[in-house]
Write a protein that binds this DNA or RNA. Sequence first.
RNA 1: GCUGCUGUAGCUCAGAGGUAGAGCACUCCCUUGGUAAGGGAGAGGUCGAGAGUUCAAUUCUCUCCAGCAGCACCA
Length: 647
Amino acid sequence: MAQVTLTFPDGNSKSFDAGVTPAEVAAGISNSLAKKAISATVNGAHWDLQWPIDADASIAIHTMKDEVQANELVRHDMAHVMARAVQEIWPATKVTIGPVIDNGWYYDFDRAEPFTPEDLSLIEKKMKEIINKRDPVTTEVWERDRAIEFYKANNEPYKVELIESIPGSEPIRMYWHGHWQDLCRGPHLQHTGQLPGDTFKLMSVAGAYWRGDSNRPMLQRIYGVAFTSKDKLKAHLTMLEEAAKRDHRKLGREMDLFHFEEHAPGSVFWHPAGWRVFQTLIAYMRRRQDAAGYIEVNTPDIMDRALWETSGHWFNYMDNMFLAKTHDDRDYALKPMNCPGHMMIYNHALRSYRELPMKISEFGKVHRYEPSGALHGLLRVRSFTQDDAHIYCTPEQLTDECLKVNDLILSIYKDFGFEDVHVKLSTRPENRIGSDESWDLSEGALKTALDRAGMSYTIFGGEGAFYGPKLEYVLRDAIGRDWQCGTLQVDYNLPERFGSTYVTQSGEKQAPVMLHRALFGSLERFTGILIENWEGKLPFWLAPRQVVVASITSEADDYVAEVVAALTAAGVQAEVDIRNEKINYKVREHSLAKVPVILAVGHREVDERTVTVRRLGEKQTSVVSLEQAVADFSRDATPPDLLTAAE
RNA sequence: GCUGCUGUAGCUCAGAGGUAGAGCACUCCCUUGGUAAGGGAGAGGUCGAGAGUUCAAUUCUCUCCAGCAGCACCA
């Protein structure tokens, strides 16, 4: 019989009969390893213990101690065990797919009746029974036709479709968990008893389209999480609770920042405190853009259909537009984007190459009729304010301008504490306009800019806008969640559609290239992200209420007013609290409202002209003079861009 | 938009086929208290909207609206 040489992680190698399985290899090492083994890595591929090895290879046997492999197997086997449990309880249920995802798995089912929350505990119970049975996991490779016939006979049409979509070069692998069978690429554990019975939890049921296609049937998806130990499950559930505490919708209510109404779904009612944050952001961005040579404009919210036909929105973006028909029977639309308005301003004069690059910015409020199910607090709304700008430049200036935008974006994110930024580059889609040459140029400009900036990026082929490729800036927050904010897009198309030109040095008319860019993206969304990132405890300069001056006794009321006046004059958002309440009560209330600083004043402070400073989250207080406090908080209230300028 | 769930006081939530309750918040009174809830009293609701069943609907049924989770879509 032919021999194969297997090399172990320690560098030793050994000869085996060809077709040996990792299970046999493990058994050759020790009985306990044979029992504990869960899978192997063979030549870098995650390998089932039952799969034969036909050629020389490196091999590593895994146990539950190998976190990466253990998690994958536990979650994958859990998916199968859950599907088996569901089919044992409701035999008519059809199975589809059940992949491993972050922290767990899901499995999609086709069943007429909806699963209820009570059903989940029923399924969990059945899963534990199955795990306790310690049923062996077995696998075979089948002929394609045999597998298709098998699933047709078993009335599992989704499996038939899956097999038909598996490339001919790949084996059709069948798995059994006891008597229960599934089509699966594996690998899997040795038997269900290797699953920890108390480290998983079924989380939720939701609809999901078959194959992610909204034209196809909606299935029922059950989500579960699973870990290799009980502690890790617990830690995960705790993390979910922590994330829930950061929910900006909850914090927005508690901090009295904004609210929503039924009659304006997806549109924000900004309260004074929230609007202050919003305006602080705009003021900051306006300074940064002014410094970077942008010119700010304002364009109409409602414009005639003809303009939207020229821009292409009327036919390409209609589903997302709010329309308005007027008494004179004209069709108007609320602007979903600012670009056509900026085209009007660019085109209003004969432009010279001397004016380029021309950077037209606008804090324009755009309206988009988003699908109802997409709305989500401030993060996904139907009307929002963009820190939008369009840069008109010559083809030669393109790369430089991209680079400048990139630099500006990173510098701005840094000021907000976001240093972990990732870039997605979306390239030409199938449905596109413009020549391949222009796409080469615009994609090249973005790539060159990124390379020159030393940025790493991920390419998403075919994901670009129909008129040009785009960069998307994704930032990672304090608890590791990713948020897409800024965008930079190259566009050769709109200038052409609007007949935009500039006069070159040699006196000819030429079409400019146009960049679309937004740095915060949506001000609403960015505000929501900041709230979640800081758990409502915004940095002092962004905090809507920066200082509350609280009296301990009513005899300090006049002094409280004096302190607040001094702070206000120094540019600090300061408030009076001289209510007839104890200082404990006031401290609690303002702490819950995430006010960064509470100044307590009683007899002592009045006599000594001091304040007692208590910062949010600190038990320790300190006493400083009124002058010192005004200086300190005035500096704290200064936005980071102005601080740098002053130093 | 799709699937499922939810909608009762400003907020968080009980409740029941016979037109509603708690805690916090709010108002007033007492209390002037030194760093996360002092005490008392009071006021506050067309029970998301419309239709149907019923002697009677906030409760049951249907439709619509909004919210939540996920999918699809996306800043």
